[in-house]
């Protein structure tokens, strides 16, 4: 991490109340168990804030919280999950200035472009919220077996999904990897961008004040180098999205290999971060869905 630039305050200047951005685990905002934090700079290298550097123990705590939340979240009606995610979008609208500011500083965008990025992020979340109670009809259905049986295939969430969020796109990319995982009923342990974590912490504050149950989304700042390999090898994590490891084939390969230990579903890292404004398609939902097929005899 490069040292951020500082300046000395004048005698009569009001001193800022600087915020330490914490982790989001099980609906609470703990400091990193390790006690480590790191300085986050804006796109020009000026100090923005301190953020927690999540440790292996934090990753484990987040998995425990996500596992605990899984049954309840997966067991809700899809309609209810969709409503809750739509509510998150509403609260994001409420906090527009805060998100625009966070994205501007993180990504070095003009105000207008940061506004557009926020618009797209909110729209993306609304899009996925709407999928919650439709995906089963699109990817599941009745199977016409050659015998007197009722036979139906339905998608079900895979379980606890570790998500390495993209390094560059701090809000649109973040929402684009997180929303499909939770809209489909999984719970998430998300590792943020290392250099641009603050929009994710702002999102955590939105999640905490909307109706998303604690533990459904857990957010770890500090980059994937620390917690990534632990999440990849964790036996109670069912799937891992390596998107955040784009451009790090060695790290991504090591995590994919570790993930084989309990046959995790792995979404591999792309060579480079994708253009997040593209149509996302269904892939990011279906990658973390299982197909369950139920048979029953027909008869009188």
């Amino acid at each position: 991490m490069t040292r951020t630039t500082t300046r000395t305050a004048k005698a009569d200047e009001r001193i800022d109340v600087r915020k330490t951005y914490k982790l989001y685990i099980g609906g609470a905002f703990p400091r990193s168990e390790s006690g480590y934090s790191y300085e986050v700079a804006d796109s020009r290298g000026r100090f923005l804030a301190n953020a927690a550097r999540a440790s292996r123990k934090d990753a484990r705590d987040a998995v425990v919280a996500a596992r605990k939340a899984f049954g309840g979240w997966a067991g809700r009606t899809a309609y209810n999950r969709g409503q809750i995610l739509y509510r998150v979008a509403e609260v994001m609208e409420d906090r527009r200035p805060q998100f625009v500011d966070a994205v501007r500083k993180a990504e070095g965008l003009t105000a207008a472009r940061a506004e557009t990025t926020l618009d797209r992020s909110i729209d993306r979340l609304v899009w996925y919220a709407g999928w919650a109670d439709k995906i089963a009809q699109v990817v599941g259905g009745a199977n016409p077996v050659a015998g007197p049986y009722f036979n139906i295939s339905s998608p079900e969430p895979t379980g606890v999904v570790a998500v390495l969020a993209p390094e560059q796109s701090s809000l649109l990319g973040l929402v684009s990897v997180l929303a499909p995982v939770v809209a489909t009923g999984n719970t998430a342990v998300l590792v943020t961008s290392e250099s641009r974590p603050l929009p994710a912490v702002t999102l955590a504050e939105v999640l905490a004040t909307s109706d998303v149950p604690g533990g459904v989304v857990n957010i770890l700042t500090g980059g994937y180098a620390g917690p990534g390999p632990w999440l990849a090898s964790h036996m109670d994590v069912n799937a891992i999205d390596l998107t955040g490891a784009a451009g790090d084939p060695e790290g991504a390969t090591a995590m994919e290999r570790a993930a084989a230990e309990n046959l995790k579903r792995v979404r591999r890292a792309p060579d480079a971060e994708p253009d997040w404004t593209d149509d996302p398609g269904l892939d990011r939902m279906t990658a973390f869905l299982e197909t369950k097929t139920v048979w029953h005899p027909k008869g009188i």
Binding site: N143, S153, K292, T293, V294, W295, H296
Partner: peptide
């Protein structure tokens, strides 16, 4: 695969 009141049924469409 969940078989209810049957077991070990397989079909090309399933």
């Amino acid at each position: 695969v969940v078989w209810a009141n049957t077991f070990n049924k397989f079909d090309a469409t399933s």
